[in-house]
């Protein structure tokens, strides 16, 4: 080891036109947005939505949520894995909380399969915002995977009383299956963040 890591700095309040330009209506293409899976991807189509709350319980309007997930068969589109089995599925999404009137993030994707046959289905989350100097990692698990969640080795390392903060609540709505996942920065429901 010869080099030292470059320090992180905040994404600031003005990331939108650089990182999520299309969503915010700026004339610059975005590499990723809220639509992670299109109609050609196989698997169960789902919506994942939620808000990010600060220590006062107010929704944050300048956060950016990135998601990274396996496809419906549990494979990542990455050389480290056997590549995604869904050729049009990147597994990567980005959404800023500044365009929805309720400051929600809104992803359309497919439900991931179990990664490596051991972990429960989950979506990896990277969180950025003004007022955050280093990004945070968390995971979204699914409320209808009770059995798999109970055996998940990562959830197992989380204090039992806090595991609930990582489980998205399923709701069957006219638009389809919606999973609700709110992120709380502080307070009683403070979300579990990982050091990875």
């Amino acid at each position: 080891m010869t080099m030292k890591q470059t320090p992180s700095q905040t994404v600031g309040p003005y990331f939108a036109y650089g990182l999520t330009a299309e969503q915010y209506g700026y004339p610059f293409t975005a590499i990723a947005g809220g639509k992670v899976a299109d109609e050609l991807c196989t698997g169960d189509r789902i919506h994942v939505t939620g808000r990010v709350f600060d220590g006062n319980g107010d929704p944050i309007d300048d956060a950016m949520i990135e998601i990274w997930q396996a496809d419906s068969e549990g494979r990542y589109l990455h050389p480290e894995d056997g590549r995604s089995s869904n050729s049009v599925f990147t597994g990567y999404g980005r959404y800023g909380t500044g365009t929805d009137p309720q400051n929600r993030f809104l992803f359309e994707t497919v439900k991931p399969g179990s990664v490596d046959g051991v972990q429960a289905p989950h979506i990896n989350v990277i969180l950025f915002m003004r007022g955050q100097l280093s990004h945070l990692y968390t995971r979204i698990y699914f409320s209808d995977e009770v059995e798999a969640n109970a055996k998940d080795p990562v959830l197992d390392t989380v204090p039992e009383a806090r595991r609930e903060t990582l489980v998205a609540r399923r709701e069957d709505m006219p638009i389809g299956v919606v999973y609700h996942f709110d992120i709380h920065m502080q307070g009683e429901k403070e979300t579990v963040f990982f050091d990875l």
């Binding site: 220590g55 007022g131 990562v154 806090r162 920065m185 502080q186 403070e190 979300t191 990982f194």
Partner: peptide
Amino acid sequence: TVLRAPTKPLVPL
């Protein structure tokens, strides 16, 4: 950062 930093330690993964 005051209202936006988690108060609990990060969980090693």
